[in-house]
Design a protein around this nucleic acid. Structure first.
Lengths: 251, 251
DNA sequence: TCGAAGAATATGTACGATGTATTGACGAGA
DNA sequence: TCTCGTCAATACATCGTACATATTCTTCGA
């Protein structure tokens, strides 16, 4: 790989060091490459590897590789032991709700399975969060919810665009936080991944679905009038509809 | 293996006491100290710190601090910018599901709040997992569920003991995995925390509640006969009862 | 007063050196 | 032949140093 070779050359010669891409940090790049590789199954569970190999292959220093491996370890994807090296752990041990892992799974062959599983998770969590939000949301949160819905309506003619997506993400993120439960709020990043992934998979129509918009408004209104059951019902309908879109995909 | 499960294995006679994993590695020690400090609020959100200070204070090199900070960053607890240093992010951005964060919260003053939030999460997730398991669980999983219930019955006279707790944990863990959804399965460790924590808080009676045992059996039976709705109903009753116990605690 | 150039600073990255736990080979003894 | 202890090799663990780079702060000039 020429990039790696270039990086190695650059580090050997003192003056012309390779200029790294501005916004991207090396350890983030390493982490991303390694994570994607493990999730995709290119490195099977139980495989034992040596950190130095990764560093050499990717043209990065031990420092960068170590930092990436440390994160992979905290994600439960690898275990590190002296002398033995780095062992890939079975996928059942992974922190499946970590945004990074979700993103990697959405990027690979298992993306439809991941989307479906995320839908099932949403179906369980989001109605419950809506029910809680109806009793705990303060004025600021209610206003934010309404504003997010309004933005969705505004950009309804480009439902597959970035503005609509941003409003949709803001709606669900606001609601999860408004539930007052930090566990639910912690799912924000994961929910965001599925919404972004859905748009990237081109599952969104050009024009927003009337029913979907109405349901979002219904959730916001129900929370405003503190009707938890109605909020949960409408949210259930939202995630059910989203799951149907995923289900319609060809496996 | 999770901390909770390990503790269960280690002690059969008394309530397992979760100890701080003897972090033999410096960066694990740093991570643990920093994480606990942030979660406890000793370093408030928005605070800007310098990595070198932490290193000097804890007597560790910059390398070790960097690795710990990298993990904290992946947990959403801090953001790192050049020159600006390390900024503590608001708790709403944290990955509340990370075992580390749950452990830190259970260790500090927010222990009871954390337990209550875990109950709310269970109420949302476990009935859904039971419904899924009814249609996807294979023979092995069904047998494991039945065996776990049987163990609970066997140790019903010591419902506040380690054996009953272990069977209870095994029941819920098996069910979550049997759902066939890796996101639900990934919540196993977190669910374990609340079960162990409930016993530690001495919320369990000496003799197991008749109703609770019957409900667990009902879940297992419903899953065996593929009755998803009945399984979800019974599981809802289980978590509702568990939540009442937590609610009774003084905040 | 304002803006641009430069200094200061904290993180980003690389690498060498040394410590150390773990492994696996090897050989002695039963 | 088998078992067990010893020892060398290995790969991570940690520290320290050096330099790059981005961001902020300061200073100075128009």
């Amino acid at each position: 790989m020429s990039v790696a070779a270039d990086a190695i050359m650059g580090s050997m010669t003192s003056v012309p060091r390779r200029t790294t891409p501005a916004a991207v940090k090396v350890h983030d790049t390493i982490l991303d490459r390694l994570g994607e590789r493990i999730v995709s199954g290119q490195v099977p569970a139980g495989e034992r590897l040596v950190a130095a190999d990764w560093g050499e292959e990717l043209g990065a220093s031990r420092t960068a590789v170590r930092e990436a491996v440390r994160v992979l370890e905290s994600l439960g994807m690898v275990s590190v032991r002296r002398k033995s090296g780095i062992t890939i752990r079975p996928s059942t041990d992974w922190m499946a709700f970590a945004p990074e892992i979700v993103r990697w799974r959405l990027r690979g062959a298992g993306r439809l399975v991941q989307l479906h599983e995320l839908s099932e998770l949403r179906a369980a969590v989001e109605p419950a969060a809506a029910r809680l939000a109806a009793s705990t949301a303060d004025g600021v949160a209610r206003a934010a919810l309404g504003a997010a819905v309004q933005d969705m309506v505004t950009h309804a003619d480009r439902a597959n665009g970035a503005d609509y997506l941003a409003a949709d993400v803001r709606f669900h993120a606001t609601l999860l936080r408004a539930s007052g439960n930090s566990m639910f709020a912690g799912l924000t990043a994961v929910i965001e991944e599925v919404l972004v992934g859905r748009t990237e998979q081109e599952l969104m129509p050009q024009t927003a679905d009337e029913t979907a918009l109405r349901l979002h408004q219904e959730v916001a209104h129900a929370i405003t009038r503190r009707d938890g059951e109605a909020a949960a019902r409408a949210m259930t309908a939202i995630v059910d509809e989203a799951d149907r879109a995923v289900q319609s995909l060809p496996l």
